[in-house]
């Protein structure tokens, strides 16, 4: 059905107009700064629709480009996609080769003049352990990073080949090396965060996993455990995941942030032990200060029907009360 509609003249123009409108509306409210995407389900999609595996991956890529366009229209400054995990090398050699070729050609395509990267000023960064990659792929990836390095409006991180444990091991290794070079270096959570591949990027606000699997599969584990990060699981397979699904998730996050002050939605009030508060490190304090700033945004008070809840528990009380009455 959707394929049939998409053959109409002017379809893609109409879609990009709609995305522009949605983006311009959603960027007037809270927007996640950094989104992680686990694009799972390409193979299952190919199997279910009895198309070639190649074709499934290809459609997955198109779906990614469509979703990314919406994200950047909405003002998301950073997206991290899980393209290939180190364990994927266990797959059949023909498929691995094919994935490598696909990554090469598609990434080259989006980084060309006039394409996605150029249009939104996206800097492409490849995160991962390059030691696993063949030389020719390495050269191409370096080239892509080089051509887009001057773009500053947004960032696209392609994790290729990546696992979070490998990233943490890398961070520990480089931190240890730095600590040996500079004896004054005080190693804390900040230091390790700065040695992750995602160093210098805004904290992860939203992580999306498709295909109805409720696992993180070794993706951005370090970045997603803080309470600030909302994790959303979608039942759709990745090639079926449309910008419309993304819009719903984006608005839901925005709504939760605006209404409850928390991207996750209605949470319980966190009770923190006194001694622990004192022992809390700078990261948490800075983060909570930042949060309270964000919640005092002028947009929150300009609404007539609901004043921003000062804490999540207040919000839940209000809802509970309204439910009873």
């Amino acid at each position: 059905m959707s394929e049939w509609v998409s053959t109409f003249p002017g379809y893609s123009l109409l879609m990009s107009r709609i995305k522009k409108v949605i983006g311009s509306v959603s960027r007037t409210g809270p927007v996640p700064r950094h989104i992680g995407l686990i694009m799972d389900g390409n193979r299952r999609f190919a199997k279910n629709h009895q198309i070639e595996l190649k074709e499934g991956h290809n459609m997955g890529f198109d779906s990614m480009a469509a979703v990314l366009e919406l994200l950047y229209e909405s003002g998301v400054s950073c997206a991290t996609v899980y393209a290939f995990l180190i364990e994927n090398f266990k797959r059949l050699k023909t498929e691995v080769d094919w994935l490598m070729d696909l990554a090469k050609s598609k990434l080259m395509q989006i980084s060309q003049n006039g394409e996605l990267c150029d249009k939104y000023g996206i800097r492409v960064r490849i995160l991962g352990n390059f030691a696993f990659l063949p030389d020719d792929v390495n050269v191409v990836l370096k080239d892509i990073m080089h051509t887009t390095r001057k773009n500053t409006r947004a960032t696209l991180n392609v994790c290729f080949p990546y696992t979070s444990r490998d990233e943490m091991a890398h961070a520990i290794r480089t931190t240890a090396e730095d600590a040996n070079k500079d004896s004054g270096l005080d190693v804390d959570e900040h230091t390790l965060t700065d040695h992750m591949y995602t160093a210098g990027l805004p904290p992860l606000d939203l992580l999306i996993r498709t295909s109805g699997t409720y696992r993180l599969s070794d993706f951005l584990l370090w970045q997603c455990v803080p309470s600030l990060c909302a994790i959303v699981f979608s039942d759709r397979l990745w090639p079926e995941f449309t910008p419309w699904d993304m819009t719903k998730i984006l608005f839901m996050w925005s709504f939760n942030k605006y209404w409850y002050g928390h991207g996750n939605g209605q949470t319980m009030r966190r009770v923190v032990d006194e001694p622990l508060v004192r022992a809390m490190d700078r990261t948490d304090l800075a983060q909570s200060l930042w949060d309270s700033d964000a919640s005092a945004s002028p947009t929150a008070t300009s609404t007539g029907y609901k004043v921003y809840a000062s804490s999540p528990s207040d919000a839940s009380d209000i809802t509970a009360a309204s439910v009873v009455s």
Binding site: S164, R165, M168, Y214, R215, L216, S217, D218, L221, W222, C224, V225, P226, S227, C229, A230, I231, N264, G265, Q266, T267, M268, R270, S316
Partner: peptide, 24 residues
């Protein structure tokens, strides 16, 4: 809890863990 909130759970140990929560 009412939402999936990992509350700084040890990140290393979440690699293939299946997650479950019941909304609200």
């Amino acid at each position: 809890g009412p939402v999936l909130d990992l509350q700084d759970y040890p990140p290393w140990h979440l690699r293939l863990t299946e997650m479950y929560w019941e909304p609200d």
